[in-house]
Design a protein around this nucleic acid. Structure first.
Lengths: 228, 228
DNA sequence: TTTATTAGTGTTAAAATTTCACTTCTAAAA
DNA sequence: TTTTAGAAGTGAAATTTTAACACTAATAAA
């Protein structure tokens, strides 16, 4: 550790991997750049860290700028620092991934960015190292979804068991057994079963559930650990 | 994303959580600062990122500067960015943790830093947010040790089963059943049993094993996943 | 030759996970 | 009014995994 004066100062960016879910598929929100470098290509939404904010705040600001949303689930992923990752200027990027309710966001999307939702498996090639970021984010999301109740962030407040299962199948990219899934979820005892039914998906209709966050937090305090 | 010219440039540091193992306890290597700020207090070894290197390289350089070692297992942990984390100047730090063979390092420790090994449970309070970094590193190490064969990085090339078990007990901070542990390790089939015995620990002597990295890599290619 | 000490070795019970198929309900069609 | 089509909802049995557990072997030192 040497003195502070002689050190290189460097641009710090945050890039956001924004996940959504549309009843069927896991999606990411990308923007079409109309600025240099790489104008016209698809990329993650990003922005530079300012002197008076921390990285979480910067990520929140960047996400809000595009989606209009606040209080969104975000988690720092990691830093990307290849010397030539940005051809314009040396930039370190810290990636964050966000989980949002795609429907809510849709309405408020900032049109300045020509943003578009892509099915996670059909996303275009991205600039710089953004493909790597997305892959790393997917891996993190998969792991996290098994140990924290973050899936609910991607669903509307009220959802059916089937929707929840479909979501997990999309995240984990594998089919799950219906009975086992429901049994596991119910064993966790963190959902609130409403009286309402969703009649859109079937003749019979299926009950709507809500994530009971208060109950969950109480259980966590008592040593409970979410585990799917 | 705005233009690059108007953005704030910021100091970027790397800090290293250096883990070692001394036959019995998990340790971390700390330095006593003889420079400002916080002169005289204990801290992690750190340094600033230079324009022409990436974070991995910076972490390697910083580690080497203190220990004289290269080709050490290191993994990026995460970034720490509280606005006032460093009272001297706005600095973002990216933490790395390293696993080294404490014995090897001991000889080559750079004396300029008044470095000292501390039992992980007896470490002093550290400057800035370094305590948080250490805690986060411990959590990561625990998780990683269960899914990757990184424990061997902390041991000499040849080690006894008992040593390996003691290491895992130190990392996980819990007692393990001897027979179950050995059965699990043997089931993985990634160790090479040598003809040699370590006679220091008992009358009977115990066989020395080596991690068979070639075999491990081959198995990984065929879909094998380390899981303790 | 005895003793003291750690190394080394498998089985059994319990818990967790996986597999699997039929009935219920209701709207729409006949 | 009755039939039909299609998803919702429900639990037991088999398998796999994990956890608990105690004695013999080997050797150096006494």
């Amino acid at each position: 550790m040497e003195n502070y004066q002689d050190q290189d100062k460097i641009l710090l960016a945050v890039d956001c991997i924004i996940f959504g879910f549309d009843k069927k598929n896991l999606k990411i929100l990308l923007i079409k750049r109309d600025f240099e470098p790489e104008r016209g290509r698809w990329s993650l939404m990003g922005g530079f860290l300012k002197k008076d904010e921390n990285l979480d705040e910067a990520a929140d600001r960047v996400l809000n700028h595009l989606t209009g949303l606040h209080d969104v689930y975000m988690e720092q992923l990691r830093s990307y620092s290849a010397v030539d990752r940005d051809p314009m200027e040396r930039t370190i990027s810290v990636a964050y991934y966000a989980l949002i309710n795609a429907n809510e966001a849709e309405a408020e999307l900032n049109e300045d960015f020509s943003a578009k939702w892509f099915n996670i498996h059909e996303a275009p090639n991205l600039i710089f190292d953004h493909n790597t970021m997305v892959n790393n984010a997917m891996a993190r999301l998969r792991r996290r979804a098994l140990t924290k109740p973050i899936g609910f962030e991607l669903l509307p407040k009220k959802f059916t068991m089937k929707q929840l299962q479909t979501l997990y199948e999309a995240i984990l990219d594998e089919k799950l057994d219906k009975r086992n899934f429901i049994n596991k979820i119910n064993a966790l005892d963190i959902l609130l079963k409403t009286e309402e039914k969703d009649m859109k998906s079937s003749r019979k209709g299926s009950f709507l559930y809500m994530f009971d966050e208060v109950k969950y937090n109480k259980k966590v305090k008592e040593g409970f650990a979410f585990k799917l």
